[in-house]
């Protein structure tokens, strides 16, 4: 079940390959409520190019605009200036084409749907037939190791299990791009590390491009090819830390290189404050 490359995923266009960057953010700024009371400049002049198959983490102090940046890429909000290109299309067109899967800090599961039906929702909206939906949902449940909970309702699951369902749902239609906003925020340390390993495995296996918002430095380093460090509000890119740890496993967390990268990110965060 290891990835096609087995090694680091970065570089040379990644496993999917071809056709320019997965995400291109150029000179993007976002001002909420411009010219009104409550005007907030959330993001200022961000340039970011994300290769296909790359795993990028966004890290920065609370309120610095990480979620806003992610939501700009997802076209859930429009930039005040600058452009966002996703897989060669405008962010809006990419959203209309359902070119990405999204997982939020809250799992956002529908309580009237079973676990399976929750995972099937994006497939229903894309017009998949029932047989295909069911077999894919079963496949995804196996991936997040929740086969035994297929017919349970969300409230019968722990917070971590709900989060895994949300990730399975985001991955279900094989999106070339995965956008995640602190999906492991509510989990305990052990579950969190387990989920990180799972996510790493899934992204390697499928060659998915990922943008991942987190507050945890070790999490960002463990998962990413590059860690993007943002300044306090308005969010600007302070540094981009390249992480070359090769294939990740539990031992990775013990290596000197891992600790070195953690220190590097921490110092970048300190310097930015």
């Amino acid at each position: 079940m290891s990835g096609p490359s087995g090694g680091g995923r970065v570089g040379g266009g990644g496993p999917v390959g071809g056709g320019g960057p997965a995400v291109l953010v150029a000179g993007v700024s976002k001002v909420f409520n411009p010219g009104r009371t409550g005007q907030v400049e959330a993001v200022r002049g961000v340039d970011l190019e994300i290769e296909r198959g790359e795993f990028i983490s966004l890290i920065g102090p609370s309120g610095c605009g990480k979620s806003t940046l992610l939501r700009l890429v997802a076209n859930l909000t429009d930039p005040t200036s600058g452009t966002v290109i996703v897989n060669g299309k405008t962010a809006r067109q990419a959203r209309l084409d359902q070119a990405y899967g999204m997982a939020f800090q809250q799992s956002g599961l529908f309580e009237w749907r079973t676990v399976t039906k929750n995972i099937e929702l994006p497939l229903e909206l894309r017009g998949w037939d029932r047989v295909r939906r069911q077999s894919r949902a079963a496949e995804m449940l196996k991936l997040v190791k929740l086969e035994d909970f297929a017919d349970h309702h969300p409230w019968e699951l722990s917070g971590g299990m709900q989060q895994r369902v949300a990730i399975a749902r985001a991955l279900a239609f094989d999106p070339p791009l995965l956008l995640m906003d602190e999906p492991f925020g509510a989990l305990d340390e052990m579950t969190r590390e387990h989920m990180q390993a799972e996510l790493n495995r899934i992204c390697e296996a499928t060659g998915t491009t990922a943008v991942f918002v987190t507050h945890s430095i070790p999490e960002a380093v463990f998962l990413s090819d590059r860690v993007v460090v943002l300044s306090p509000r308005p969010g600007r890119i302070v540094t981009v830390v390249e992480v070359e740890l090769g294939a990740r496993n539990d031992d990775t967390r013990e290596t000197p290189e891992f600790f070195k990268k953690i220190t590097e990110v921490r110092e970048a965060l300190r310097g930015s404050a």
């Binding site: 939501r71 959203r95 084409d97 359902q98 899967g101 956002g108 994006p122 909206l125």
Partner: peptide
């Protein structure tokens, strides 16, 4: 839930 549905267009 609203944003999720929006992300599904």
């Amino acid at each position: 839930k609203e944003e999720l549905m929006r992300s599904y267009a």
